[in-house]
Design a binder for these strands. Structure first.
Lengths: 139, 139
DNA sequence: TGTCTCAATGTATAATTGTATTATTGTACT
DNA sequence: AGTACAATAATACAATTATACATTGAGACA
């Protein structure tokens, strides 16, 4: 990877790594789909603890620049989609809704049941500002 | 098989697969006696290691939903009793709604816009249906 | 008919990868 | 000195993958 870190600059290592990786992506030396070094290999290369690398990766992941996947590795994400026109956006939203309702119907949902579930989840959506993960626990 | 999994959701792949397959069975898209894809073919389709598929199958096997047989394949067992099936159905509906709202959020939909679109489409869906309560607009 | 071979299937175990939690270190400030 | 806090490291853990293995069944063939 050949990233340069200055241990005496006073700037935290993980922040330096975030910047260096951002640069790589911005300049095209890293492109969507590319796998970044594993936290351990990059840590070895930079003579740093792998948790420090993981911290940098996590920051980039939260911003959506890369995707870290346990057991698989970390990958450069697709470039943020260009501004989509309002009409296309609305069309996509309608298609999405159509598919959703079709699936719900297949699941035998009545309009009342759907109404209830939507009200419930939209409330959470608005309160949290984002959506919570569905519950996957068994029974 | 056309199963959808989200590598970024933070939910383990094998658990996502368990849920998706449960949904298929609960909704009758997979019926008793049907053969599931081999661990290798499904793994290839999902770009995943076949052991991950095997892990999902094993979980479903232990619960008695499917039957995996070395050298033969894996098959859907008899339908689970209705009360279990109903639980799975509800959970599937909630997960479906969650994914829908997450996608809609990504498209920049406000709750008001969503409400309008849903009202529109539900009208077409069931002529009788008034899906959303008006008070959802409030606050 | 028997059995041999082999491809396709699931299984078991270890290695690789990221994650979470806790401990250590360094630095600024009283 | 002492305290508080951030950065880093140590350790244990969970998910996924890599590799080798065991089981099954279909076909070849004597």
């Amino acid at each position: 990877m050949n990233i340069e870190i200055d241990f005496r600059s006073g700037i935290p290592i993980y922040l330096q790594m975030v910047e260096r990786i951002k640069e790589r992506i911005a300049t095209g030396r890293l492109t969507p789909g590319d796998q970044l070094p594993t936290v351990r290999s990059l840590a070895l290369e930079l003579r740093v603890n792998f948790n420090t690398v993981a911290r940098a990766y996590r920051i980039l992941d939260e911003v959506g620049i890369i995707s870290t996947q346990q057991g698989r590795g970390t990958y450069v994400m697709n470039n943020p989609p260009p501004e989509i026109s309002e009409k296309i956006r609305q069309k996509a939203l309608k298609a999405l809704t159509h598919r959703y309702l079709a699936d719900a119907e297949r699941l035998g949902a009545s309009s009342e049941e759907l109404n209830q579930i939507l009200k419930d989840q939209v409330t959470h959506w608005q309160q949290a500002g984002h959506l919570l993960d569905p519950e996957l626990d068994n029974e």
